[in-house]
């Protein structure tokens, strides 16, 4: 199980990296943390004549406060995301989702940009990005463009990124209102890809009524999905009432799913267990609001 030969490039700037991508087109592949790409190379399931290693592009690393939210460089390691104070405070859902990614050795190398560029529908960051309406910052030799999450994920492993484009950063806005966040997933074993997962953010207005609902789902469709039916059902409800009905509301998510079966779980399982999970995670997020409300 050894990779086929390739030419190796280790640019130190985004400009050089996108230059290489422009030069080699389809034959080039950016290498981020390598935790998904290298196994595919080793098994010769994919091969590229040129590997453009991003690990020496220092400008792609790091988390910065950005207009009330955060900007996260695409090469920021998942371990750094997990332990970053600004992210924990401003984008708690990313903080909650990260420990579910693989194992700590994987997170030491894996990057947030790598996950989002790879766009595995069963992985965590794409679902969080979709739930939170995050933005992808994409560079090429023609400049930089921003793509909202709702337009970024196209189909399984397919995104708005063109072969000559590079995902250089992600932006997340912080939520201004009182909010509760929760993340969980069902996996066969600790650290496995999710059979189904949910990333939930619920915001309330001054009257304690839900005025923002973000329910992202993973593992239940060709891309990460929003549970639009659930979100719609939640709007305007009092948090405590929604909490009491969380399981029932969560069940609506089954209609928002488009799962495919594999050897680990059937389509039917993902729909059934996934919607149960949505209800539970919704309950967790709402519990934070009701606890906070009663505390304050």
């Amino acid at each position: 199980m050894k990779p086929a030969p390739f030419q190796y490039h280790a640019p130190e700037t985004v400009a050089d990296a996108v230059g290489l991508l422009a030069e080699h087109g389809d034959g080039a592949k950016p290498l981020a943390g390598g935790q998904s790409l290298v196994p595919m190379l080793a098994m010769r399931l994919t091969r590229f004549d040129h590997i453009v290693d991003l690990n020496r592009v220092s400008e792609m690393f790091g988390v910065t406060a950005d207009n009330g939210g955060v900007r996260i460089g695409a090469m920021t390691r998942q371990a750094a995301v997990e332990h970053d104070g600004t992210i924990a405070e401003r984008v708690p859902l990313l903080h909650l989702a990260t420990p579910h990614i693989g194992h700590f050795q994987i997170r030491n190398r894996g990057t947030i940009g790598g996950s989002v560029a790879h766009a595995d529908p069963a992985s965590e960051y794409p679902a969080v990005m979709l739930a939170l309406d995050g933005t992808a910052e994409i560079a090429s030799t023609s400049g930089t463009r921003e793509v909202p999450a709702s337009e970024y994920f196209e189909s399984t492993f397919m995104t708005a990124l063109a072969p000559d484009e590079l995902l250089v950063g992600l932006r997340f806005a912080a939520w201004e209102q009182p909010a509760g966040f929760a993340f969980d997933e069902i996996a066969r074993r600790s650290g496995d890809f999710a059979l189904a997962g949910a990333a939930v953010g619920i915001g309330i207005d001054e009257a304690g009524r839900i005025d923002r609902a973000a329910v992202g789902m993973l593992g239940v469709g060709p891309t990460p999905l929003r549970a639009a039916s659930v979100e719609a059902a939640l709007m305007g409800l009092a948090a405590a009432d929604a909490g009491a009905d969380a399981a029932e509301i969560g069940r609506l998510a089954a209609d928002d799913m488009d799962p495919i079966g594999d050897i680990h779980a059937s389509e039917e399982y993902r729909r059934r267990a996934g919607s149960t999970l949505v209800g539970r995670v919704l309950g967790d997020a709402l519990a934070q609001l009701t606890t906070e409300a009663s505390d304050g």
């Binding site: 196994p39 098994m43 074993r189 496995d192 890809f193 050897i263």
Partner: peptide, 28 residues
């Protein structure tokens, strides 16, 4: 609970990596 060498109907094995043939970990 976890391990299964799955074949499809045409005799194609579907658990040919450690991502699909699930050895239990310490957590299980």
């Amino acid at each position: 609970l976890y391990e299964h060498c799955v074949y499809d109907e045409s005799g194609n094995p579907l658990a040919s990596t450690f991502l699909d043939y699930l050895l239990p970990t310490a957590a299980e």
